[in-house]
Design a protein around this nucleic acid. Structure first.
Length: 151
DNA sequence: CAGTGTTCAGGAT
DNA sequence: ATCCTGAACACTG
């Protein structure tokens, strides 16, 4: 059984996902991507539905190192919520820069919501174009505020 | 050893 | 109020 690679549009971008069963191995943003199916939950997420992606397995958060612990902490950040590098660092017991380092090497954005981790003073960084991070956050915020008059 | 998707404090404009 | 430095922290290749 081979790993499936497919893509789905998100705004002006195309999200390419390599996955198999309930495990996602790689997520990549680009202008174009191969035709093929992607993980159902990620597809619904990209279509603007509030879905819980914590059920998806990612090789990144399995391990013994600090990085894996950071990824697990990041995954606890819920849909439409944000946390700072410093908060994640304090949870795991490490330094903010280690969190940034881990985010920069995140193999599976969305599954591990690195876009919800922002700098204390601004939006923070993002290895693909920062526009994507802004769009993702804007979408989640819109969905959350859209559900029955809450904030 | 060097490079980060940080953070904090200080000082200048 | 905004912007710039410099320093210290933890982790990975």
């Amino acid at each position: 059984m081979a790993v499936i690679t497919g893509s789905h549009p998100f705004g002006l971008w195309v999200v390419t996902v390599s996955w198999q069963g309930d495990a996602v191995y790689r997520v990549h943003f680009g202008r174009t991507g191969p035709s093929g199916p992607i993980h159902p939950l990620i597809r619904r997420y990209l279509m603007g539905q509030e879905v819980d992606l914590t059920g998806i397995a990612s090789p990144a958060d399995e391990g013994d190192g600090k990085t894996a612990a950071i990824y697990r902490a990041v995954r606890k950040v819920g849909y439409g919520e944000v946390a700072t590098y410093g908060e994640i660092a304090e949870t795991v017991g490490t330094a903010p820069r280690a969190v940034g380092q881990a985010m920069a090497r995140n193999p599976t954005p969305l599954v591990i919501p690195c876009h919800r981790i922002v700098s204390k003073h601004g939006i923070g960084g993002f290895t693909p174009p920062i526009e994507i991070k802004k769009d993702l956050l804007a979408m989640e915020r819109a969905v959350c505020s859209g559900r029955k008059g809450r904030i």
